[in-house]
């Protein structure tokens, strides 16, 4: 028990100050989650609040998993996420390495950072419409391709009715809006490293490239895992851009899992129970993946450290033995 000073305990204020948070969390987060679980076991369709539970409780989950649109949407989500995340991480890493290199400073860093991060702050819905206009018929990209002679001038070029082009654009928008953010996170991660590690690498005569690959990168692991997990959680919920860009079209090529859930619940049919089951499946997927990534990468780290420790112990014993 903490000591009471002057006979007055202030501990109760800890509870009092936490009440608003807890209350609002219970009402607006926990209760809706429980409600979603209940809907996912019911036959709720259309407008209404009355819940009738299914005799076979997992029917909704089974039919979601057998739904071709859902599985395709899930595959699209994963594909678009990877198409955006891999280049995003690579570009962000290269830029972070350049921007933290103390020997060859890049001038105008401040302006570059501001410009690279800028797309992140702009409404995704507006960006989606903008890219629709840029790549649409009579749009700048259409115009550019025709004027450099890449495509014939008199044939209408319908870039947006091509599934792969549309997926590529959605992935590019995600990349374009997020690489600056990832770069800033990595830079702050590198700046947060112990300066002594750099100094010793410097004294050992390591080149900037060697320092980056052998000193910075291994130490940046936790920050990179954090970026990976948050990007994955965000990516699996991708909604704004695919919804506004082409509403999942053409031919379902940009349909994502979140868009599927939205269309089920708030499209014309209001199939609430299926939407609820799909969102719970997504939650389970997100939870399993994030916890999995975290533990796999963590464990590998721990195993490596243990091995190094053992090797060091051996060396030490050997050295000690010889000295005696």
């Amino acid at each position: 028990m903490p000591k009471k000073r002057k006979g007055v305990s202030y501990a109760k204020y800890g509870y009092i100050f936490s009440i608003p948070f807890v209350l609002i969390f219970l009402i607006f987060s926990l209760y809706p989650i429980i409600y979603t679980v209940m809907v996912s076991f019911s036959d709720l369709r259309g407008f209404g609040t009355e819940l009738n539970f299914l005799e076979k409780p997992f029917d909704n989950f089974i039919s979601v998993l057998n739904n071709q649109t859902f599985t395709k949407a899930l595959a699209n989500t994963a594909l678009i996420w990877m198409l955006n995340f891999i280049p995003q991480m690579l570009v962000a890493l290269v830029l972070a390495a350049w921007f933290t290199n103390k020997r060859t400073k890049i001038k105008g860093q401040g302006i570059f950072k501001i410009l690279f991060y800028m797309p992140n702050i702009i409404t995704a819905a507006s960006i989606a419409i903008l890219f629709g206009a840029l790549f649409g018929q009579d749009g700048p990209v259409d115009y550019l391709l025709k004027s450099i002679g890449a495509v014939p001038k008199d044939v209408p070029l319908r870039l947006l009715s091509n599934g792969w082009v549309s997926r590529g654009i959605v992935a590019f928008i995600q990349f374009w809006t997020w690489y600056g953010y990832t770069m800033l996170i990595l830079i702050s991660g590198i700046n947060g490293l112990n300066p002594e590690t750099f100094e010793s690498a410097d004294i050992d005569g390591a080149s900037p490239r060697q320092t980056f690959f052998h000193v910075v990168l291994p130490n940046l692991r936790t920050v990179m895992i954090y970026t990976l997990v948050t990007s994955l959680i965000g990516g699996l919920q991708m909604f704004d851009v695919p919804r506004v860009f082409q509403n999942g079209q053409p031919d379902g090529a940009t349909m994502t899992a979140s868009l599927f859930i939205y269309n089920q619940a708030f499209g014309t049919a209001h199939i609430m129970n299926m939407a609820a089951a799909a969102s719970l499946l997504m939650f389970i997927l997100i939870a399993v993946l994030s916890v999995g990534i975290f533990f796999i990468l963590r464990d590998r780290d721990a195993i490596r450290e243990r091995k190094q420790e053992k090797a060091r112990l051996k060396e030490w014993k050997k050295a000690g033995g010889e000295a005696r």
């Binding site: 809706p32 209940m38 959680i233």
Partner: peptide
């Protein structure tokens, strides 16, 4: 722990709750 819960998990229940 709750920091990582995606907002869309509760969306259907939230809508139903508010609709009610």
């Amino acid at each position: 722990a709750v920091m990582m819960i995606p907002a869309q998990v509760s969306a259907i229940g939230f809508y139903q709750f508010m609709y009610g």
